[in-house]
């Protein structure tokens, strides 16, 4: 009885008593959800273009962040380190396309999925062999102080992250909509064989998509690295992006954003108001349960392509 009261009544009483605190928690959650979306975006790009569920995205985030932080530690300013890291991600993308994807063309999805897990092990090892495993502090001059907006407080860092994510999505949308390569990417995402038959080079497109995903991973890595420090646990951020991904749908960029917002807000609110009732540390699984609940009503995620099955 006590337990039910703690779950069903007490949290709402708390929300009712201090609505501005609830709004503050909600906004904090939404903004941190944007950070999850950043990681989920990379997954979506690759899944859309090649149908590969790229588990290595988390490792790519870590890999990019390690290189970026490593270059900066060597004394290169950030405007020099950024293109250098993009170059590294380009080489990496071409390598993955040549060594992993090309020999595995036409294999079942699960095999490609396992291959990307192999890639993620490899990248985790390679990045740390080159740059060492101690934690690096990444300071790119983003303020961390709280800002007062009327009655509620918001962290300045979260706002910067949201702006960065927003401009990244806008840039991606423009890139997909208005460039030649973007059009080719959309064609490949739509139908591999049709795209091939009108002369779109599939291999080049895949390398480009993996590079773009690598750049998205770099942005995510820099933001997460500035927040948590660049270390091995950064690769685990990918596990946080997975529920975002299934909630939004594997094939939808807006889905990744909306999914991130829902997961971020839900997680924060649950952590603050419900954690006392059912014991702390629920952020490990809450996002998955939330996504699962949504999936039961929409099996392809909120914005995913409708799954049509024929015999």
């Amino acid at each position: 009885m006590d337990f039910l009261y703690n779950i069903l009544v007490a949290p709402f009483a708390m929300i009712g008593a201090a609505p501005s605190f609830f709004v503050e928690v909600l906004i904090g959650g939404l903004l941190s959800g944007v950070m999850y979306s950043l990681v989920a975006l990379g997954f979506v790009l690759i899944f859309k273009a090649s149908g590969v569920f790229n588990f290595a995205q988390g490792a790519m985030v870590l890999f990019a962040a390690l290189f970026f932080a490593g270059f900066m530690d060597k004394g290169i300013p950030w405007y020099g380190a950024l293109p250098l890291t993009v170059l590294v991600m380009l080489v990496l993308a071409m390598g993955i396309e040549r060594v992993v994807l090309r020999p595995l063309v036409n294999q079942p999805h699960i095999i490609l999925f396992m291959a990307t897990i192999g890639v993620s092990y490899f990248l985790d090892g390679l990045g740390q062999t080159i740059w060492g495993s101690e934690m690096r502090v990444l300071n790119i001059g983003i303020p961390q102080n709280p800002i007062n907006m009327g009655p509620i407080q918001v962290n300045a860092f979260d706002i910067v992250a949201a702006v960065v994510a927003g401009s990244l999505v806008a840039a991606l949308a423009l890139f997909f909509q208005y460039t030649r390569i973007g059009r080719a990417l959309r064609a490949v995402a739509d139908d591999h064989q049709a795209a091939l038959s009108v002369g779109i080079p599939l291999k080049t497109i895949w390398a480009i998509v993996w590079t773009v995903a690598g750049v998205v991973g770099l942005v995510a890595g820099v933001m997460w690295g500035a927040k948590l420090g660049v270390q091995f646990s950064l690769a685990m951020v990918a596990l946080k992006a997975l529920p975002v991904l299934i909630l939004g749908g594997f094939t939808s960029i807006p889905g990744a954003i909306v999914g991130g917002l829902i997961i971020g807000a839900g997680e924060k609110v649950a952590e603050v108001f419900w954690a006392d009732a059912i014991g702390g540390g629920i952020e490990d699984w809450f996002a998955y349960m939330l996504a699962l609940a949504f999936l039961l009503f929409r099996p392809q995620g909120l914005f995913g392509d409708k799954i049509i099955e024929r015999v």
């Binding site: 060594v99 992993v100 020999p103 595995l104 294999q107 079942p108 095999i111 396992m114 291959a115 897990i117 192999g118 890639v119 993620s120 092990y121 490899f122 990248l123 985790d124 090892g125 390679l126 740390q128 062999t129 495993s133």
Partner: peptide
């Protein structure tokens, strides 16, 4: 331990390519 990660990952990719 880092090399172990790398070799493990590389071997898995290798095996998947050779015999899926």
């Amino acid at each position: 331990s880092h090399l172990e990660f790398m070799i493990f990952g590389a071997l898995i990719i290798f095996f998947l390519i050779v015999e899926p």
